[in-house]
């Protein structure tokens, strides 16, 4: 009785989620397989021919291989920012969780502020120009680090406070100097939260559109999200190419999702239970 109800309910849920969540993705894939004429209809139909490779090639070589440059730029920004984020945030999260000083309140306030306060865009541009970093990948990387630090720090701090302080003290008695305590004892134990950090921040930074829009004007340093946005007007009649582009930039998050599903969910739900 109960079992049958669960199967019927399951079937209904599968059907509903299929329509709502899966069909849009199938639509993207189908469009990417079509030729220009068929794609112009924008309907949910089977492709008349297999045009994926042509489409991919055309998208990639458009505007002087812009797509390749963009992928490289996005990869550099993502890899470097995430590396810096992990190192900086682990250091802050560790000391913040362990050392009680009168600054802790202020630091925690600034971290929470970072999660809430919208970045002041134009003053940042003005400042980056002053530092000769506006429009450069360096500048973009530093901005991504600054904007995403609070979240990473919170993840690290929460995790560090689950590591018993006795371990630090045992190491100190064993003769460990401060850097030994961090690098030999604590850091190896932070591996799970480091993976979570890498995965969650990579996806976020790779998909970031707003910040590159402001801080990386022009074509030279465009990211994949910017090129997709620009292609929207350029390919306004070539839906097959537009959707091929969408398909291409969906692949990295898809891979992350397939391999790190658990860590992403862990990272994004961190703190939800504690409130």
């Amino acid at each position: 009785m109960k079992k049958r109800a669960s199967i019927i309910g399951g079937a209904a849920a599968i059907a509903a989620t299929f329509v709502v969540f899966v069909i849009p993705f199938i639509f993207i894939v189908l469009m990417a397989f079509k030729d220009r004429q068929q794609s112009a209809l924008r309907d949910f139909s089977w492709p008349t021919g297999f045009h994926l490779w042509e489409n991919v090639f055309e998208v990639v070589k458009t505007r002087n291989w812009m797509m390749i440059t963009a992928f490289i730029n996005s990869s550099i920004i993502t890899v470097v920012s995430v590396t810096l984020l992990v190192i900086f945030a682990a250091m802050v999260g560790y000391v913040l969780a362990r050392r009680r000083t009168r600054w802790n309140g202020l630091i925690e306030f600034l971290i929470l502020a970072g999660l809430m306060v919208p970045p002041a865009v134009v003053p940042t541009i003005w400042l980056l120009q002053g530092l000769k970093l506006f429009g450069t990948l360096h500048g973009m990387i530093l901005v991504e680090v600054a904007y995403n630090l609070p979240f990473s720090i919170i993840l690290y701090r929460a995790f560090v406070s689950t590591i018993p302080r006795d371990l630090d003290e045992a190491a100190i008695i064993d003769g460990a100097r401060p850097l030994d305590v961090f690098f030999r004892v604590v850091l190896p134990l932070l591996w799970p939260v480091t993976v979570t950090n890498i995965v969650v921040q990579s996806v976020g930074i790779f998909n970031d559109f707003t910040n590159p829009l402001y801080y990386l004007p022009g074509n030279a340093n465009a990211t994949v999200q910017l090129t997709l946005y620009n292609f929207q007007s350029q390919f306004s009649t070539a839906y097959n190419l537009l959707f091929t582009n969408i398909l291409l930039i969906t692949i990295p998050p898809l891979l992350v999702f397939l391999f790190f599903n658990r860590q992403i969910v862990a990272g994004m739900t961190a703190g939800a239970v504690k409130g």
Partner: peptide, 13 residues
């Protein structure tokens, strides 16, 4: 240990 994060965060945020 706060320094690198503090510099980036202060200057750019």
């Amino acid at each position: 240990f706060f320094t690198p994060a503090a510099i980036v965060y202060t200057v750019l945020f």
